[in-house]
Design a protein around this nucleic acid. Structure first.
Length: 406
RNA sequence: CGGGGUAUGGUGUAACGGCUAACAUGCUUGCUUUGGGAGCAAGAGAUUCUGGGUUCGAAUCCCAGUACCCCGACCA
């Protein structure tokens, strides 16, 4: 990609109405644009990051037997009637001009919609277990959007739903999902703490959240310094400075961002929809369900909150919009090297603009692409290679650079 | 939804109730330049959030509304 052709505009200063680090840096770098409070446009650069994250999630979901599908965002209200969840006050109602009342809702969660579909497809123990997921925009009427991309009225989410013949099978799968989630967050460069939490409107049971420690986070968790056991403050009996309930370690209080959650729904929805299957012994039983979410935009914002310095973002390689950023300084033309790298399959952004060295460096730091390559009168026929998160650079030949980048 | 704050070219800011709303940056054109946001020159870009009021006169004071940010309540 040629930087001169990039749709994105880089801002020297962050707009004054952004205060959160993630929003400041993502806006300045041209990754996102705030269209309304809590409603962001993903610009091409940001969308590349989103796609990287989504691909990681897809791989891990597919690896545990998840099948991807896509449900509508426009959902007829009747789907919420069976569960009474319409009373929950976070939906947007919509209706056409020719209608006199809102019959539709912008989907904010899809258990209520998917369960009747699943009931058509699952009628025997032979159909179980099953798991489907989607990556989709959710709409929630947040009374107060805040913290940049961390809490919005509209956000991208991966939601996975699983169906089981027994509580035992659900719990087994629940464990698998927890493991897959661990891998996802690890691959995104995040240390996510597995935390016991409440289920909100989704279930009366306890659930688990994946929490990333960050001061901007709106959750408070208690974490054992020794075994890592954690509970959300909203349900916790632990105390800061107290003893862990699982070992003899000390408990610390931390602010954190919830990047994922997993809910053992049990039979709440199958009861509401009378969703049953025939077991091996011919008896009708309620299907046991689980649901599992990851906020993708929030995940991107969390990565920025964790990985930045005074000059900008420092993307982990796995989610970076490009692997390398090539800067051509002075009258040197980097076009050939750019083509060679592209040919070798390196995702590269080439700053081909006729502008100053200082500006190119500053903007490269802001964008935070992991590898910076510089060609200039100083480097001759070689290339200077530097990692965004390291101070020292090395001067290498093109073939050596290719080796480093592959 | 309660409390607080802010609103002026794309972005960041300035302007005592008084001249044609200023500066920086960004943008356009030309030339020069190129290792940490460069230089010179010429240019384009504003209904000072909206509506009302006070006043001879309002970006400025008052009222209302709207938007955005922060705290709280609520929530992935």
């Amino acid at each position: 990609m040629l930087q001169s052709k990039l749709f994105t505009k880089i801002l020297r200063e962050a707009p004054k109405d952004e205060e959160a680090t993630n929003a400041k840096l993502l806006t300045r770098g041209g990754f996102v644009y705030k269209t309304s409070a809590g409603v962001y446009t993903y610009l091409p650069l940001g969308w590349r990051v989103i796609q990287k994250i989504a691909d990681i999630i897809r791989e891990e979901m597919n690896a545990i037997g998840g099948e991807e599908l896509q449900m509508p965002a426009l959902v007829e209200k009747k789907y919420w009637e069976s569960t009474g969840r319409w009373s929950v006050d976070i939906g947007y109602e919509v209706f056409g001009k020719e209608e006199d009342k809102p019959n539709f809702v912008l989907g904010w969660s899809h258990e209520d919609l998917l369960t009747p579909i699943a009931a058509r497809n699952i009628s025997s123990y032979r159909d179980l277990p099953a798991a489907v997921y989607q990556i989709q925009t959710k709409f929630r009427n947040e009374p107060r959007a805040k913290s940049g991309l961390l809490r919005g009225k509209e956000f991208l989410m991966k939601d996975l739903y699983s169906f089981h013949a027994s509580e035992k099978d659900l719990l087994e799968y629940y464990g698998k999902v927890a493991l897959a989630y661990r891998k996802i967050f690890e691959r995104c460069g995040l240390k996510a703490i597995y935390t016991l939490a409440a289920g909100g409107d989704f279930t009366a049971e306890n659930t688990h959240e994946f929490q990333v420690v960050a001061d901007i986070g709106e959750d408070t968790i208690f974490v054992c310094g020794k075994c890592g056991y954690a509970e959300n403050k909203e349900i916790s009996k632990l105390k800061s400075g107290g003893k862990c309930s699982q070992c003899d370690g000390g408990v610390e209080e931390k602010k954190s961002i919830e990047v994922g959650n997993i809910f053992p729904l049990g039979t709440k929805y199958s009861e509401a929809f009378n969703f049953k299957f025939r077991d091996e012994d011919g008896k009708e039983k309620l299907v046991v369900m689980g649901s599992y979410g990851i906020g993708i935009g929030r995940l991107m914002a969390t990565i920025v909150e964790v990985y930045n310095d005074k000059n900008g973002i420092i993307w982990p390689e796995t989610v970076a919009p490009f692997k390398a950023h090539l800067l051509a300084l002075g009258s040197v033309d980097g076009g050939k090297i750019y083509q060679e790298l592209q040919k070798a399959g390196v995702e590269i952004l080439y700053d081909d603009r006729d502008t100053n060295a200082g500006e190119k460096f500053a903007e490269a730091d802001l964008l935070g692409i992991p590898w910076r390559l510089v060609v200039s009168p100083k480097t001759g026929d070689k290339i200077e290679v530097k990692k965004r998160n390291e101070e020292d650079a090395q001067i290498v030949s093109l073939s050596e650079a290719l080796k480093i980048l592959s």
